[in-house]
């Protein structure tokens, strides 16, 4: 496009900008406004109440639980998903037989719809009929059937495990692409210097893909914090709030109880967390871009 075609540039941009403005940016602001209003099923007419919804939410017993659960959930999923993704990528980069087919198969959980994943794993965890208990009892790990999702001690770990199962192929894909870009001659030079596989990993590979790892970790933090479907379908946030995270709490409060003001207040807190994560993401990516050699 030449500079005389700037009108065309704007015409092409207009529909996208309009949609994002009306349906993403306006609702972001709308949530903040909503959090200062009180609505309920009984009095559906919004009423301005200042900070009182915030006081109510902050003093509720559920709030610290949701914060704590969200931290456990986000850190647990991100850490395990990236570790497993990274080691899987290393493994699939060794030139073993059937690597291409294995890579394709490993991607299966990533494509499996979230609700299907949740239903399948609810069944896997079923105390009487599930595969997990059968296997563990057979192996002698368990003596009797465990109710993984119905006990507040194990529910969070069980849900994290499923999210990792579904999410690690994505991390694997990113890390595999990064590993394939690592300079082969440097690896060979390190081998000639007598470096074993662990030394090569620490001295050559990790420094070469450090930026990809950082960016990917922050990206998965953002995506995991926003997760809804698997947790909701598997536990509805229960038992006794043990797996309630921000998205499930917002949905339950807003659409289960029609308390829009309270739901929006939870929304504002999650926007604040996201703002911090996004700021970190931008800083990490800027400094990564600055370090990258030109060309």
């Amino acid at each position: 496009m030449t500079s005389s075609d700037q009108r065309l540039v704007w015409a092409f941009l207009a529909p996208t900008l309009l949609l994002l403005g009306v349906f993403l940016y306006y609702p972001m602001i709308g949530t903040v406004i909503e959090s200062f209003y009180d609505t309920s099923f009984i009095s559906p007419e919004p009423r301005f109440v200042g900070w009182s919804v915030y006081e109510k939410v902050l003093s509720s017993r559920a709030f610290p639980e949701v914060v704590w659960n969200s931290i456990m959930w986000t850190l647990g999923v991100v850490l395990l998903q990236n570790l497993l993704g990274f080691f899987t990528a290393m493994l699939l980069n060794q030139g073993l037989p059937a690597q291409g087919m294995t890579r394709a198969l490993v991607l299966l959980p990533f494509v499996l719809p979230g609700v299907v994943t949740a239903i399948l794993w609810r069944f896997m965890y079923d105390p009487q009929l599930g595969l997990i208990n059968s296997i563990l009892i057979r192996l002698g790990v368990l003596q009797e059937n465990a109710a993984w999702l119905a006990s507040s001690d194990t529910a969070m770990a069980a849900v994290i495990f499923v999210a990792v199962w579904k999410g690690f192929p994505f991390s694997m894909l990113i890390y595999l692409a990064a590993l394939q870009n690592v300079d082969k001659s440097q690896l060979e030079a390190a081998t000639l210097d007598g470096a074993g596989p662990v030394r090569r990993l620490i001295d050559v590979t990790l420094p070469a893909i450090k930026d990809v790892i950082l960016v990917n970790i922050v990206l998965t933090l953002i995506l995991t914090f926003n997760y809804f479907d698997i947790v909701w379908v598997m536990t509805r946030g229960g038992p006794q709030n043990a797996t309630h995270i921000f998205p499930t709490k917002i949905f339950e409060t807003g659409f289960g109880q029609f308390r829009f003001g309270e739901a929006a207040t939870y929304g504002v807190f999650s926007i604040l967390v996201l703002a911090v994560l996004v700021a970190i993401y931008i800083i990490v990516q800027r400094s990564a871009a600055a370090r990258r050699p030109v060309g």
Binding site: L24, M28, G30, F251, F260
Partner: peptide, 13 residues
């Protein structure tokens, strides 16, 4: 905008 949490925009939406 790709990082906006869907649960945080859904009520105004």
């Amino acid at each position: 905008a790709q990082m906006f949490p869907h649960s945080a925009i859904i009520i105004p939406f």
